[in-house]
Design a binder for these strands. Structure first.
Lengths: 246, 246
DNA sequence: CGTAATTTGTACGTATGTATG
DNA sequence: TCATACATACGTACAAATTAC
């Protein structure tokens, strides 16, 4: 019988290095877009072989944490690297249709106390201050998506002091990554149906009671920290919302 | 000035080996779950080093084409390996809710001529024979999803001769992979809203006109071949459809 | 139950090619 | 032109898991 308490798994050298690199990224010491030390430097600094450094780095490349350019270096990856589908609402008539390009209309940002549901989903205390960001997405002069985002104030200081144009070009992910160094790592969504109330019907220019596609979403950044809770309502009479799993 | 016509990119050895392995998988020579030759055998057979074989194999592991077990061997991967979210409709009340386990009711399979839209999405000729599979998914004795799938006959011979129980346990992906060796590699979806007509209202036990979540889907197997076109309608008053992007 | 053979996993080292600035 | 950095390819040795004997 084996007396040893429990089999002690030896932790590989490349894995330890991987954790060190991950920490430097998640702590914000190395920000998205910046270069990390070269293979040779990491190799001598940590006293491991080049091959081991390569293995640790390539694992993080596959996780979307890093990307490499031959002759230039190794860089910290951001949102767009991780998954193309995160970059935007994708609306189309059919599978072979071209993707609609949406125009974003900024509809105000304000500081609010977190509601029960927002607090739960963003993993913050009740009544903790949150930013509430409202936007409307237009497809060729027609409003098609109404969206309301909640973002913790402690992560995004002075978000309400940013110029409104910042919320109208590019995705919110890109903006937050550029301004605060936090990329989107993963993303949960719940799809349902909701009838348009008076406010939605006004903003989306549809009759009250029109059935809308509702998307509730929580986005996570490093360390599985939720950093955006969003509720969207979409008009899907002409175009529908596209998702791809590759 | 450089006179050479265009820079001829040298194709790496590991990449060529990768293509050979990929062909053996996609042609069905090595089926999901089966073992492929060992590193040593591939190394001597193709006259390359073990390290090069390892690199080719690991690339296919990351692509979801293969998986490895230390001491046992390297095996061809299937649907479940690729993406957990492909395994099922996932319905829940909220993000922190437990996932509902759905019971599948088989509602008949028949041979039909492809309609225009089915033919387009499945990339087959007009009037080509397709199987039409109808199922209803129950959440605790209550019907919540009505679904209709179209599958090309040329890929799934005698699918209508299979015992109905085959369509009621496990996912359709798993069944098709087990019976025909074709796993699901990728997946496109369009989300919209649809009012229940007489047929839907009867099957889903909701009043006519109830707004339903509609999901139109095309699934692809090896070589980007579409192999299932599915239309689903979901009742989302209590539970909604969950999707995760990792 | 241990032993041996097989197979993958880890870690090291070296040499050379290719891209960047 | 040159130094730097990543990419490819080879090789070796040993560890760890599995299976059959």
């Amino acid at each position: 019988m084996d007396i040893r308490p429990i089999h002690t798994a030896p932790i590989p050298v490349y894995f330890r290095l991987q954790e060190i690199l991950t920490k430097n990224i998640e702590n914000g010491r190395w920000k998205p877009g910046e270069a990390i030390p070269s293979e040779r430097i990491l190799s001598t600094e940590h006293g491991v072989s080049i091959g081991t450094v390569k293995k640790a780095i390539m694992n993080l490349v596959h996780k979307g944490y890093l990307y490499r350019i031959q002759g230039k270096g190794t860089f910290v990856g951001g949102t767009t690297l991780r998954r193309e589908s995160l970059r935007y609402y994708r609306m189309m008539r059919d599978f072979d249709d071209v993707e609609d390009s949406l125009r974003i209309h900024f509809n105000g940002i304000s500081l609010v106390e977190s509601s029960d549901s927002a607090a739960t989903h963003l993993n913050v205390a009740h009544h903790e201050p949150l930013f509430k960001l409202r936007r409307i997405f237009y497809s060729a002069e027609r409003p098609v998506i109404w969206s309301m985002s909640f973002l913790p104030k402690y992560l995004f200081k002075d978000l309400d002091a940013q110029p409104p144009a910042l919320f109208e070009c590019g995705t919110l992910y890109e903006t937050l990554e550029k301004q605060y160094g936090l990329p989107c790592v993963s993303n949960h969504e719940l799809f349902g149906v909701q009838s348009a109330d008076a406010e939605l019907s006004e903003h989306l220019m549809v009759p009250t009671g029109t059935p809308l596609l509702s998307i509730e979403m929580v986005s996570y950044t490093y360390k599985n920290t939720p950093y955006e809770y969003r509720i969207s309502y979409c008009v899907t009479d002409e175009r529908r919302v596209f998702r791809a799993i590759e």
